[in-house]
Amino acid sequence: MVGITEMTNWGVDLIDVRKTYGRSIEALRGVNIQVGRGEIFGLLGPNGAGKTTLVKIMMTVVKPTHALGTILGRPLGHRGKLRTTGYLPEDHCFPPYLTGFQLLDYYAALAKVPRARRKENAKRLLDRMWLTQWANVRIDKYSKGMLQRLGIAQALMNDPELVILDEPTDGLDPVGRRDVRELLLELRNRGTTIFLNSHLLSELEMVCDRVAILVNGLVARQGTLSELTEHTLDYRITLQSDATAIKNKLEAMGALVDGCAVKLTGDDTDKLNAVIDLVRGEGILVQAVEPHHFTLEDILVEAMGDQRIPPARPVAGFEQRQG
């Protein structure tokens, strides 16, 4: 049984979310994702992995086939919590007959933001997104980047506790992107929880506290950036002289030998030392041992290459519940 305090600890706590479109398109196959309050969380994955579907389920745009868990401590689709959640959909097309100001006001009214606060927030956010001069211009005259900035402003109109952004930097130039990153950090400093979908790896690396990698509708990896990237991919050992003579022995230990270079796959310090002992025993000098770290890109590529995707890595606080 999940205790109420535990429930409210997470900003987003999704358990076994599944979605099958129609009869056969399995977009999500049992996703577990936990996002701490006040953190920036990045959901990463190749095209068609199901990122947008997951976000749409969180925002009640799509009905899940099966879903448990909470958002801001309440069940999915809770009205009060939707009221304090901001959402920027992917590839949005806003009503062209509205002006920027009218659009912000309309969407905020649907979120039950009182009139005075709507006016105040619209003014502030238009200013923050560099759109003040465009406030009273119909949005069919906006450029793509301006629409995206307006979309972000729209997601913040209700002073949200949780902001869910699907590809927020889509269509933005480098300056715009940096500006969005700064905005995200500002929001986090105010305690807002941010859930981000992106396939721009560098972007996530720069701002996210934690990420999950979604592949084929399953979470392949999940954790803090350092948890995921500290984890070494392999060791590269450079020898002073050729090791072909002991190639067979080294290969028996799982190392790859190419002249003076030895590569040891996997994060196993004992094995590394055993290899070094062997080499030293043969009288060969070790010139360098380099651990080669994962980058987010390596992790993604590796996760995508995994044919049988392993179950999601349990995160702190999650094991007890399963136990």
Binding site: V61, R79, Y87, Y107
Partner: peptide, 17 residues
């Protein structure tokens, strides 16, 4: 139909109503 277009309806149906 225009209201229900993909990308246009998303924000609307995500509101607390």
């Amino acid at each position: 139909p225009s209201w229900m277009e993909r990308g246009a309806i998303d924000v609307v149906v995500s509101k607390p109503i």
